[in-house]
Design a protein around this nucleic acid. Structure first.
Length: 270
DNA sequence: TGGTAGACTTGGATGC
DNA sequence: CTAGTCCAAGTCTACC
């Protein structure tokens, strides 16, 4: 489900609800969504208070008053939401009982998501292995261009690799490549400087507008209150194989490599 | 070593 | 109506 815009939407929702609340109890219904032992997980969280919520790539970062950090990666179908009348959880994995009477639910159909506890130093080390934030003011098109030169991978695969740039998943990788006119299988090191500038601009534009639309809901993605995002109708290439390209009317193609589908227009993308 | 296929897991769509 | 097949927002591991 969740790429940068979806995780950002959830984080902004959680920032309004969670800081200052204390975990009174924790029920782990599906132990395989947490890394490490469930007793250690409980010991580290029960009785602790959330200080702040932030995002790093596709990870939700919760700083606790103990100094430990709870990191949630939603995988493909993970959700965080408050249990309320209008919010239906089909596959609850963890219940966080909070002190203001609400229950925060981690729900995950496929259970590819993971929750993990880090010390500050452990998280700094882990975070240092991740690539730059594409929406950060410090991230320049020259950074993208330089890094592209060191890889012969197809650009779509390169964009999905969180060591190169964080937060990009299959939907927004395909959308950005379409907007910048680059074929998904072009080797990263054969993208020109001009093209890398177009890709840089496309990436930021696509991610920002998806955040404004509160993310793309294809099936499972929901915000914290259980509502879907509004960005799916804005997609111009992802999932549109067999339909006409919205830019030139040629037929959108689907190919598969690295075990993932890629969508492209053979006229617009070379 | 860099790059990629496979595994993990459940369910919806398609079509017999 | 049902069965089999294919496909899905991500990431980690193993292998060439």
């Amino acid at each position: 489900m969740p790429e940068l815009p979806e995780v950002e939407t959830i984080v902004r929702d959680l920032q309004e609800l969670i800081p200052g609340t204390t975990i009174k109890n924790l029920q782990i219904l599906r132990p395989n969504v947490i890394r490490g032992s469930d007793t250690i997980f409980k010991d580290n969280l029960i009785g602790k208070t959330f200080q702040s919520i932030s995002r790093r790539g596709k990870n939700i970062i919760a700083n606790m008053d103990s100094g430990l950090i709870l990191v949630v990666n939603l995988g493909m179908t993970g959700r965080l939401g408050l249990q309320q009348d209008d919010c239906v959880f089909t596959h609850p994995a963890i219940y966080f009982t909070l002190n203001f009477g609400k229950i925060l639910v981690y729900d995950d159909v496929r259970r590819f998501g993971k929750l993990d506890i880090y010390s500050e130093q452990e998280w700094l080390d882990r975070s240092a292995q991740l690539g730059p934030e594409p929406l950060s003011p410090e991230y320049k098109h020259t950074d993208l261009h330089e890094k592209l030169n060191s890889s012969g991978s197809p650009i779509r695969s390169w964009l999905l690799d969180q060591k190169n740039v964080v937060g990009v998943g299959n939907i927004y990788a395909n959308e950005s490549l379409h907007l910048s006119g680059i074929h998904p299988q072009r080797p990263a090191n054969r993208i020109t400087k001009t093209e890398s500038q177009l890709l840089y601009k496309a990436l930021r534009k696509i991610l920002l507008s998806a955040i404004q639309n509160r993310g793309t809901t294809l099936r499972n993605y929901r915000d914290v209150s259980g509502k879907g995002g509004n960005n799916s109708s804005k997609l111009r290439i992802y999932g549109r194989h067999g339909e006409n390209c919205l830019s030139c009317s040629d037929q959108v193609q689907r190919i598969s490599f690295s075990n993932r589908s890629a969508f492209f227009c053979p006229s617009c993308q070379r």
